[in-house]
Every structure is written in C-alpha cells, then in structure tokens.
C-alpha cells in the first residue's frame, strides 16, 4: 500500500467527513439566515418548471440507488434471493434512467443559469464552484456506469467500492479494495468527497431542511412572542424573570 493510496482512500475521506459534519454545525450556528434554497423561480419559470423537478427527483432516485448499492452489503441481497445478474440488470437500468434524468435536469438548469440574465447575475462564485463539483460528480458516476457496461465485463463495485466505503465507517478502512477499482470509480469517489467537503459552505445545505415534518405538524403554528421585546436580547440582568 503506497502512501498515496492511504492519503486518497483513508485520509481524504476522513477529512472530508469531518469538514462535512463540523462545517454544517458551524454554518447552522453562524448563518441560519443564509440557510436557504435561494430559489430563482421569481426570475424565470418556464425552464425551471422543467429542469428543477427533473433534476431533484432524479437525484433523489440516485441517492436511493446509492443506498441500495453501497450501503447494503452484497451478502444481504443475495440472502434475499437476488442473484448478481438480476441485481446488476436492475441497478444499471434504474441507475441510468435516474442518472439521465438528473443530468438532463442539471443541463437545463445550467443552461438557464447561463442564458437568463437575472438568474445569471444572481449566481455567485460559490454557486459556480458547487455546480462544477456537483455536475462533475454526476457525469463521472453516470459515465462510469455506462462505459463499464458497454465493455463486456462491468466492474462489480459491490466487491470493492462498497465494502471500502462501509469500512470507513467501522473505522477499519480497507484502502486496498478501493485501489483495485477502475479509474472511473476512483475519480467519481474523489469528486464526491470534494463535493462533500464543499457542501456545508454552499447552498446545498438546503437538502438538510427537507421539510418532511410538514406532513404531520398542525397547519397553523402558534408561537409566543420572544422573551425580549424588539430585536435585541435583553441586557444582562434585565431578562424577564417570569
């Protein structure tokens, strides 16, 4: 095992994960006000109406697919009676459909960002970096899947990438597994870590405010006035006592 392998497949993942977690905590504490989707629908709706649902639903399926392929060990699906060939056929078809949806949606959205004046001028440098990382990761992932299947022997990532990924979380990393994976997978994974490290500082944080609580909460929210009047917190010693 070379130092480079350790760096790429052990050190980098841990660093990225640490940045991801600490970054989110820090951002949430420092910048709740900036925690938003920053929607640009007000400026333009025709393209967004098409691109945004396509992208978002696509990427939700992609996430589900990754949970199925990466987090669930091969032995479990086999125990459930799903043979490798069945799994593979399913994963590739669904994966390509979801990936294509995502990519098409992203393409529409990027085109929209670039061509619609108001949307373009509302795009920050931060957004651009995020787009590069996000679209890059998607393209690498989808490309690897498609190219791998065009050749006759698609790589079984559930023997390499998936166990390596899980091993990181048991704190017994197995970089040698990842080192065996084809270059496409390696690049996809590297780009994904970079995206994860950038995540808390981008508008992608809105993923973590997916409002699932809406389904169960009462329609009207009542809240008491803040303990202090106005917008300033009371001075020390002047807080309300009752």
């Amino acid at each position: 095992m070379t130092a480079l392998q350790i760096l790429l497949w052990v050190a980098l993942p841990y660093v990225a994960m640490a940045v991801f977690v600490v970054g989110h905590i820090w951002r949430y504490r420092y910048d709740k006000f900036g925690w938003t989707t920053r929607s640009s629908q007000l400026y333009e709706n025709r393209l967004l109406r098409l691109g945004s649902p396509l992208f978002h639903f696509g990427i939700l399926f992609v996430v589900l697919g990754h949970i199925g392929g990466v987090l669930i060990p091969k032995s479990w699906t086999e125990a459930a009676g799903i043979s490798e060939s069945v799994y593979h056929a399913l994963a590739v078809t669904l994966g390509v459909i979801a990936g294509a949806m995502t990519l098409a949606g992203a393409a529409i959205l990027v085109y929209r960002r670039r061509t619609v004046g108001p949307v373009f001028s509302a795009t920050t440098r931060n957004d651009k970096a995020m787009y590069v990382l996000l679209v890059g990761t998607i393209v690498l992932g989808l490309g690897t899947t498609v190219l791998g299947n065009l050749t006759d022997h698609p790589h079984d990532y559930r023997e390499t990438v998936s166990p390596w990924f899980r091993s990181i979380f048991y704190f017994q990393p197995k970089p040698e597994l990842m080192a065996q994976a084809p270059l496409g997978f390696q690049l996809h994974v590297l780009s994904a870590w970079a995206l994860a490290a950038f995540w808390p500082f981008s508008r992608l944080v809105h993923v973590f405010s997916a409002p699932v609580g809406y389904l169960t909460r009462p329609y009207i929210v009542y809240r008491s006035r803040d303990a202090h009047l106005g917008t300033r917190s009371p001075q020390r010693g002047w807080e309300r006592t009752t």
Binding site: W35, T37, S39, H206, P211, Y222, R223, S224, R225
Partner: peptide, 19 residues
C-alpha cells in the same frame, strides 16, 4: 407563525428555507 399574544403573523427569517 401566529403570535399567541397579539395574533400578528410573522415569518421567522432564521427558519424560512425559501420554499
């Protein structure tokens, strides 16, 4: 939210996510 004391309806800027 609607304030219990005086019924004024306000947007919590720290909680709004721009949906």
């Amino acid at each position: 939210y609607k304030r219990t004391e005086d019924g004024i309806v306000l947007v919590d800027q720290d909680r709004c996510r721009g949906w």
